[in-house]
Nucleic acid binder design. Structure first.
Length: 153
DNA sequence: GCCAACGTTGGC
DNA sequence: GCCAACGTTGGC
């Protein structure tokens, strides 16, 4: 069974346009340094889809859809001392952090803004909208997925 | 830039 | 194991 997710990225560091401009429109979703988010990454299966969410920017919101094309494998950025996400506690033998590969499925012609999401009664219980939620990777239930897509379809 | 809400760290 | 201090996230 296919599962749905939401993955956050700050567009100033990596936006949906950056993904669109990648060769094959594929990118490793690395740099996640939170255990809960990591566990969600590890639960992802090939073929799962995720909303690409732009966070910490002028207009936060969902910019499009990506598909998981490679399941979790060790995040190389944790091994690189020069990388901003370097973590000496993650080793080749015992990797602590993981990433998946995503491929662009669709960039929405119009951003589904956080403001819009908040207005939807059916989305009130959505994890993304809960107070204090800071998870950069989180699950979306099918009903929420479809409700969100209905906003632009 | 502010600040609430978390997560992590480290002394005890 | 507790908890204060600190760091980070992310909306505003």
């Amino acid at each position: 069974m296919k599962h749905y997710w939401l993955m956050k990225s700050e567009p100033t560091s990596f936006s949906i346009d950056d993904l669109a401009n990648r060769r094959k429109q594929i990118e490793p979703w690395d740099g996640v340094r939170n255990y809960q988010a990591r566990n969600f990454l590890q639960a992802m299966q090939k073929g799962d889809q995720a909303f690409f969410y732009h966070s910490s920017c002028a207009i936060p919101g969902i910019a499009g859809i990506v598909e998981i094309i490679k399941t979790a494998y060790p995040d190389k950025t944790a091994f690189d001392p020069l990388n901003h996400h370097y973590d000496p506690k993650s080793t080749l033998n015992k990797p602590k952090w993981f990433c998946v590969d995503v491929k662009l499925v669709e960039k929405f012609t119009q951003l589904i803004t956080l403001e819009t999401l908040k207005k939807q009664p059916y989305l009130r219980s959505m994890r993304l909208l809960q107070k204090g939620n800071r998870l950069s990777v989180l699950p979306i239930i099918l009903q929420e997925w479809e409700t969100i897509l209905s906003l632009i379809r």
